[in-house]
Amino acid sequence: MITQASPQTEESMDTGKPAPSRTASIGTRSRVSNKALDDRGFSETVGDITVDQPRMQTRDVNVYYGDKQAIKDVSLDIGRNEVVAMIGPSGCGKSTFIRCLNRMNDTIEGCRVTGTITLDKQDIYDPTLDVVQLRARVGMVFQKPNPFPKSIYDNVAYGPRIHGLVSSRMETDEIVQRSLERAGLWSEVKDRLTSSGTGLSGGQQQRLCIARAIAVSPDVILMDEPCSALDPIATARIEELIDELRENYTIAIVTHSMQQAARVSQRTAYFHLGDLVEVGETNQIFTNPRHRLTEDYITGRFG
């Protein structure tokens, strides 16, 4: 059950030329808030939610699980070739938010999404849009490595095959090798491409999942705590990989490790109880956050 975004909002985001009204609707929100502070000291997002070259834009996104509201009026741009990290305590809505970006929430019973989310200015909740195509453009890597119980080769080849990106064995070979190379796994598995993907180590499995995600040449890669099940060395390899992938992809990562967010991202968004509290350059967020709630969280002051 997806509630359609209001056409008016959509129109304002689709306008090609920047009209003055557009700046008002999707520009930086005023820092002087006219909303009342709630008992946490929150009124609205602090910091610049916009970027110069947005790949994805979300505006006033609300997500409800039944009666419960998981996300409240979240507006955020995700820029090209940048890594955006979502941080916040459990239940703050950060995972829910990135799951909206490729409509993973469609699969959850009773989940309702309102607001506008666009990918390259196209509304991704448009009913005529093919969700399978969307997910090919917006790939996802999960917390637990989840390779298919198939060979390493087939794990990577699966996406390109079902999306018809390959027509010959040679093309498939090429795409599999390139994807595994980009994921930094090729040298480790090139001699055993036919053995099962589930037989790899945890870190290798996660890189296999990343190879699988990039095999279909997505624009955006969403990562939901990709390193939480990995050891520090495997984590470092994934982080190095994220930094390399940034050249070609837009990456949104949810992480419980603030150090990881600090290491891999250029922008950081801090969520608390469903609100996007603060967005900013990662440097600024971790050295001099503007909002009290962000400060309390990153310095370890939440009970």
Partner: peptide, 18 residues
Amino acid sequence: MTPKSTQNPQQIEEHTVK
């Protein structure tokens, strides 16, 4: 987060790790 902290924004709360 206790309401106390919003009453006095200057006061710094304690860390979770004492």
